[in-house]
Amino acid sequence: MLQEILAFDFMRNALLAALLSSIACGIIGSYVVVKKIGFISGGIAHTAFGGIGLSYYLGINPLFGIIPFSLAAAMAIGLLGKKANVAEDTAIGTLWAIGMAVGVIFIGITPGYAPDLFSYLFGNILTVPTFDLWMILLLDFLIVVLVWLFNKEFLAISFDEEYAEVSGLPTTALYLLMLALIALTVVIMVRVVGIVMVIALLTIPAALARTFSRSLPRMMLVSVLLSALFSIAGLWLSFLLDIASGATIILVAGSTFFLVHAWRLLFVVLKKR
């Protein structure tokens, strides 16, 4: 069965994309969960739609449109919240909609039909070209190196930002860097689950990992493994049932999440009796 599946080039690429994206997703997702910035990540992802529209218009690889748009969204949300005294959810909501609007306009003025627009919105891991795999690998490398370098600072601002500031850390710069890493993770994830569903894969594995982890590095490791497991299981199921891969991955992750919590709840109830 496995050999059969791997005989297809696109399946090999899909598996590699699933595994490689899990690295960024598990590590950065852990920060997203402990710092409770899932909604910010959703905002960054949706703003990136503007980048997709722009790259359609310019006729370039959408990754090159998504990267600047998601990075700009990260900086704008971070700076508006920290420096301009704009409520964070207002900043997120505004950028989210502006990004989507820009994308719609660009796609509208681009002559012809936007062929795989759907796959950027909802992901299509089966169509990842080899070039994008290299990009994902490069971004993974960048993310791992930066997290390794800044691990004590990121831990400090995730845990207690005020204390980090009192300790003399440049907290705003560090926060913006963290948001930039989230933006790059979004870029990676777009291929796998699409911009609409990025938040789920960014948060579910990490949220599950937290319940079994005593430290943040441990949580990241468990989260990477869970994310890989969900992606591969989802990919396999979608192949078997011939249904959309991105959505299947999300549903596998989501149902595991609810099953684990239902189990824990049941355990608590049984213990009380």
Binding site: V34, K36, L149, F150, K152, E153, L155, A156, S158, F159, D160, E162, Y163, A164, S167, G168, L169, R210, S213, R214, S215, L216, R218, M219
Partner: peptide, 29 residues
């Protein structure tokens, strides 16, 4: 600090939290 602003479910041990007190003495990286 007075109020415990942080998240009690944060995955961190007592030793790790105390180690954070060394931050002011360390440079970036």
């Amino acid at each position: 600090p007075q109020r415990l602003f942080f998240d009690r479910s944060f995955p961190m041990s007592v030793r790790e939290l105390v180690l954070m007190g060394r931050l002011p003495k360390k440079s970036l990286f």
